[in-house]
């Protein structure tokens, strides 16, 4: 077997592995971050609209986590959303509020997280893993919005 073949094969294998690595690192960054290094928070909404598992959680547009589970509470039939928050963002206050927002007019829905203040004197601490976020705003459902608009128009 000639040296030339061996060199080419080595080059080919290196190129293939490089392709894998660069796909994993450059194209799909979030997947690796969202692996084990996250903690869970829970939140109860009245209506989650078009929110889905794997929708992003953003603070000021920065993705800080993803939704890992959506289910209904057995007692009051309200949706409970499990939020996977990346480990490095572990200083959110208990006064944090969540709202379901839409990217653009027709875009995907995501959870906007509004960090509150931490105030030891008022007894507002830091959210611990598996805590519930109390302050939540439901999704805006376009049909309801239009309904309200028409209703208020007719009242005028």
């Amino acid at each position: 077997m000639s040296k030339k073949i061996e060199i080419w094969v080595g080059f080919f294998v290196a190129l293939g592995i490089a392709a894998f690595v660069s796909l994993a690192l450059n194209v799909a960054n979030s997947g690796i971050q969202g692996g084990d290094n996250s903690y869970q928070l829970y939140a109860k909404f009245d209506n989650i609209g078009g929110l889905k598992v794997r929708s992003p959680i953003k603070v000021g547009g920065v993705v800080v986590g993803r939704i890992s589970d959506i289910r209904l509470d057995a007692e009051d039939y309200l949706p409970i959303v499990t939020l996977d928050i990346y480990e490095e963002y572990n200083q959110f206050s208990e006064a944090t509020s969540l709202s379901i927002l839409t990217a653009g007019l027709l875009g995907e829905q995501y959870i906007g997280l509004e960090p509150g203040f931490v105030d030891e004197e008022l007894g507002i601490g830091i959210l611990q893993p598996n805590d519930y976020v109390e302050d939540t705003k439901s999704a805006i459902v376009l049909e309801e919005l239009i309904g309200q608009f028409l209703f208020s128009q007719s009242e005028d």
């Binding site: 894998f20 796909l23 994993a24 450059n26 194209v27 799909a28 960054n29 979030s30 997947g31 690796i32 969202g34 692996g35 794997r54 992003p56 993705v63």
Partner: peptide, 18 residues
């Protein structure tokens, strides 16, 4: 281009593709 791609593409996509 790159950040939205990274946000939406999952490691699972690469695994499934493979």
């Amino acid at each position: 281009f790159w950040s939205v791609m990274q946000g939406d593409v999952d490691f699972a996509d690469i695994v499934n593709g493979t």
